[in-house]
Design a protein around this nucleic acid. Structure first.
Lengths: 200, 200
DNA sequence: CTTGGAATTGAACGGTCGTTCGGTCTATTG
DNA sequence: CAATAGACCGAACGACCGTTCAATTCCAAG
């Protein structure tokens, strides 16, 4: 037998990427076999090669897609205006975006080491593009004196690490919902750079 | 041939653990073979089994050692006294301890998924023990009113994520040395919970 | 100087890996 | 209704996996 009824590249392609994302996030790139991905989709291992030239490209494409979406989504969300408003918006955006796609986030952070040199360089550049966002924002707030930032670069890294950390513990249906978490973190983010907020 | 001259379990054992730690951190547990570890130590793969019953135990022991050392080291560093002093000390301690053993830290954070259920439960419990440290500390500062903490649990997680994040970018010989990094982060940690520090 | 245990080798086990490919069937096009 | 394009199967490739084990050699104790 071959080519079973109902087969359709337009459907199978996305399912391959989705299955790979789930499995890579759960078990790690190296620990997941092409046969496992294929089984999840319900096809033979050989058929995967209609959708990706190899396993490495599957990973690379998934990381690039995530990072490109991340930066373009912020560009569309950035409210502009004063630095405090923008920082508040950034903190909330980052948490929301990351909580919406935990698997992609996990992979983008943890599988950098699984990338071969070319792919690593590409992905690393995209990551740095996003890291420049809070940095520019803090620099602006620092320049106008509304924020007290001892070191813009460090504060930017600290901010991202703090916000991304939400993904390690947040679970839907827990004590706080997403918007409550956003509130608490936005306030801490502002406090971190010396902006006091009302309502203790 | 067998048993070459100079062989010594007292020397080889630690070298096996060190090689495994380096390789697991660099490439991930699943991506490292017993043969690679053995080659790094300069012995055959079979000889590894004099030092560990299996690969999984190698990982488990390494994670347990790290987390036990982490909590006992804080117990010996905790200055006691008021919450602000202790939080400052905690931030500095966490950064220093983590920068001193980046491989062990990386593994403890990233290879939880590589642990089989029993091992996972043990390691997870140790991790929670340490996470309770900043939480208790923030609760104390919040109770006396010297800190403004909207949510103790979240602030504790945010603090740890922020501090651990230093490991992702810090390199010796960079723009700032360790104590300068400690200064900046300790200040941000205090700001995060509403404690303003002098000297903007 | 002998002897026994410890450290190690290297071959071997069954299994899985990523990837290739010839053949086969289905859906679509003309 | 015939032909073509392409989705898929399943077997096969060589390589490597974690682990075991008999054989071998070295070191230390008596």
């Amino acid at each position: 037998m071959a080519r079973p009824s109902g087969s359709d590249a337009g459907v199978t392609g996305p399912r391959v990427r989705a299955a790979a994302e789930r499995l890579f996030a759960r078990h790690g790139y190296a620990a997941v076999s092409m046969r496992q991905i294929a089984a999840e989709v319900g096809i033979g291992a050989g058929a995967l090669y209609h959708y990706t030239p190899d396993k490495q490209t599957l990973l690379r494409d998934m990381m690039r897609d995530h990072l490109v979406k991340l930066t373009t989504a912020w560009a569309q969300t950035d409210p502009g205006g004063d630095a405090v408003t923008r920082l508040d918006a950034f903190a909330r955006f980052h948490i929301r975006f990351h909580l919406d796609r935990p698997d992609a986030v996990f992979i983008a952070y943890m599988e950098l080491r699984s990338l071969e040199p070319d792919a690593f360089a590409e992905i690393e550049a995209l990551r740095k593009t996003y890291e420049a966002v809070p940095e520019a924002l803090l620099r602006a707030g620092s320049a106008t004196g509304v924020m007290q930032v001892a070191d813009v670069k460090l504060a930017g890294m600290a901010l991202i690490a703090m916000l991304t950390g939400v993904n390690t513990w947040y679970r839907d249906g827990g004590r706080l919902d997403r918007s409550a978490v956003e509130d608490v973190y936005a306030r801490m983010a502002l406090g971190m750079v010396g902006v006091q907020t009302v309502n203790a």
